Simulated scan of single mutants.
Amino acid sequence: MTGAPGLVAVLGPTATGKSDLALEIALALGGEVVNADAMQLYRGLDVGTAKLPPGERRGVPHHLLDVLDVHETASVAAFQRDARAVVERLRAAGRTPVLTGGSGLYVQAVLDELEFPGTDPGLRAELETELDRVGPAALHRRLAERDPAAAAEVLPSNGRRIVRALEVIAITGRPFRARLPTTGTPRYDAVLLGVDRDPAELDERVALRVDRMLDDGLVAETRGLLPAGLAEGRTASRALGYRQVLDALERDPDAPDLGAIREDTVRATRRFVRRQRSWFRRDGRIHWLDGADPALPDRALGVLREARRLVS
């Protein structure tokens, strides 16, 4: 395909088929895939994140997979720096970057204006101690008093995000909402493709995916990552599936309840899918495609051709 866009972003909820579509687009455009899934940054989080194995990548280079150890904390600011460096290197080499993932903030950190104020370790520690003592709901009420717009954007259960919002407000003296991404013309002349499916169908795909994860050794993979610090990792330990296995191992280290792991993971993943859909649906720049369409790759390439025609 001639006249390829400067970047293609393939995004949307979990289990819709983004990875396969990104691979097809990269093959068609002579491009390379850039990961924008926060949990696929981690070495060893393979089964539970549905990370595409090297043997199934069909020779297409994939970037920003397996770049963190499970005890390290993922940072949107670091991801923004690293992802933009990869994108710019690929563009300079005449290769089309295909950014793909379901972590909405990570995608926007690459495509949109998003500032990252510094941190205050003392203040952060104080807020995290308070979070452990009183829980996220109490801190969310404080955030609502200081910055109602930010509180409306941050889930009351997302303690880490609430702490960060309060920290930024204290450091900058400005509303945290002012630091959230604003959508406009995306960087790199990007075209954004969204993949979604009928909610009932996607719920079923989530359940089948969790079954496959358990069959493929999720519990054993989680156990194997304990010596590397998975349970202590502030980000990796929250990964869907791994969190549920860790909880089950804490209850019974010798015989974790697989039924409870399955039920809890399916329920948590379906909730996450709904949050992802809500996040992405606010972005009017996204061209939405049906992940169940047998002609999905052709539909996607048709959108890219039309987008290039309109801006040429």
Results as ranks from 00 to 15, higher is better:
81 R>S: 10
82 D>E: 15
82 D>L: 12
83 A>L: 10
83 A>F: 07
83 A>S: 11
84 R>G: 11
85 A>M: 08
85 A>G: 09
85 A>Q: 13
86 V>P: 09
86 V>F: 11
87 V>H: 08
87 V>N: 07
87 V>L: 08
88 E>L: 12
89 R>P: 06
89 R>C: 09
90 L>S: 08
90 L>Y: 12
90 L>C: 13
91 R>A: 14
91 R>P: 14
92 A>W: 11
94 G>F: 12
96 T>C: 15
96 T>K: 10
96 T>Q: 10
97 P>K: 06
97 P>N: 13
98 V>G: 01
98 V>L: 06
100 T>I: 02
100 T>Y: 04
101 G>N: 02
102 G>S: 07
104 G>R: 15
105 L>V: 14
106 Y>Q: 00
106 Y>A: 03
107 V>C: 01
108 Q>V: 01
109 A>C: 05
109 A>P: 06
110 V>N: 05
111 L>T: 02
116 F>M: 09
116 F>S: 09
117 P>I: 05
117 P>E: 04
119 T>K: 08
120 D>G: 04
121 P>H: 09
121 P>D: 08
122 G>D: 13
123 L>I: 02
123 L>H: 04
123 L>G: 07
125 A>D: 12
127 L>T: 04
127 L>W: 03
127 L>S: 04
130 E>R: 15
130 E>W: 08
131 L>A: 08
134 V>A: 11
135 G>F: 05
135 G>V: 02
136 P>D: 09
136 P>A: 12
139 L>C: 09
140 H>Y: 08
140 H>C: 06
141 R>T: 12
141 R>M: 03
142 R>D: 07
144 A>T: 09
144 A>Q: 07
148 P>M: 05
148 P>W: 03
150 A>E: 08
152 A>Q: 13
152 A>H: 06
152 A>W: 04
153 E>M: 09
154 V>F: 04
155 L>T: 09
156 P>H: 13
156 P>K: 11
158 N>E: 14
159 G>A: 08
160 R>I: 02
161 R>T: 10
161 R>L: 13
164 R>G: 02
165 A>D: 10
166 L>M: 07
167 E>V: 02
167 E>Q: 12
168 V>W: 02
169 I>C: 01
171 I>D: 00
171 I>S: 06
172 T>Y: 05
173 G>H: 06
174 R>V: 03
174 R>P: 04
176 F>I: 02
176 F>E: 04
178 A>N: 07
178 A>Q: 13
179 R>E: 13
179 R>A: 10
184 G>Q: 12
184 G>L: 11
184 G>N: 11
184 G>A: 15
184 G>T: 13
185 T>I: 10
187 R>T: 08
187 R>H: 15
188 Y>R: 14
188 Y>Q: 14
189 D>V: 03
190 A>F: 09
192 L>K: 00
193 L>H: 04
197 R>L: 14
198 D>R: 03
198 D>M: 05
199 P>Y: 07
199 P>T: 03
199 P>H: 06
199 P>I: 07
200 A>H: 11
200 A>C: 00
200 A>Y: 01
200 A>L: 14
201 E>C: 05
201 E>A: 15
203 D>Y: 00
205 R>G: 03
205 R>E: 05
205 R>S: 00
